[in-house]
Amino acid sequence: MLQNRRDFLRGLVSISAGAIALAFDTPAQADTQAARTAPSTHRWGMVVDVAKCIGCQACTVACIHENAVPEDNFRTIVSTYEVHEGERTDAYMLARLCNHCEKPACIPVCPVGATFQRADGVVLVDGERCVGCAYCVQACPYDARFINPVTNKADKCTFCAHRLDAGLLPACVETCVGGARIFGDLRDPQSSVRRLLAEHQGEIKVLKPEQGTVPQVFYLGLDPRFAGKVDGEAALWRPSHQEA
């Protein structure tokens, strides 16, 4: 049913970026040389407990405001589906964001070395170096990257590195209504994420494991049909940025 999506959105995607004046600045993406090499005792990661997600998009909108994400672009979003099996129909919600992979596919393809990974695992884009070639956008198996139409640079989730460095939680985590996003230090055996990974060993999954990227965003309750490319029923939600 998705083949109609392009038609579906005709007339809705021509959006003037200036319609809404958001005056605050894009937070710097920790783009100094120091950030690349600073040692860290942490390794940040996230567990998404899918059954706790109510698809309210609080995370999506909080991220937009925290990071001044331009209109019709998303660093994170909750994809919402309808699943029909036999006599039963259910909704399914899947929060998507950069997986801050252990083996990021985006880094080796960058011709200018703009994309890098900090010692704490956070994958960032150095806006000074990025030339906006979009190789990384193509290389990411998770569609987690986009070219920011305002800066013309590659853009993506930073795990809110600026907030982490200030001792805070990522914006999406602190406003998650269902408590589905659990964030913490994967190197700390006492952390909530580590405890969840231990408790649910065997049930924990990642998206597209076959890509070998070793994502550090883990899913509890990930339906295998949604781990890869979703061949879907009609989405309950149809963001205006999505196309077939």
Binding site: A58, V61, I64, L168, T175, C176, V177, G184
Partner: peptide, 19 residues
């Protein structure tokens, strides 16, 4: 804050519309 993971247990949210 994330100090002692207090912000996870003490989470206080706004919904998508509230955001």
């Amino acid at each position: 804050s994330r100090a002692g993971e207090r912000g996870l247990a003490g989470r206080s949210t706004a919904c998508g519309r509230g955001n």
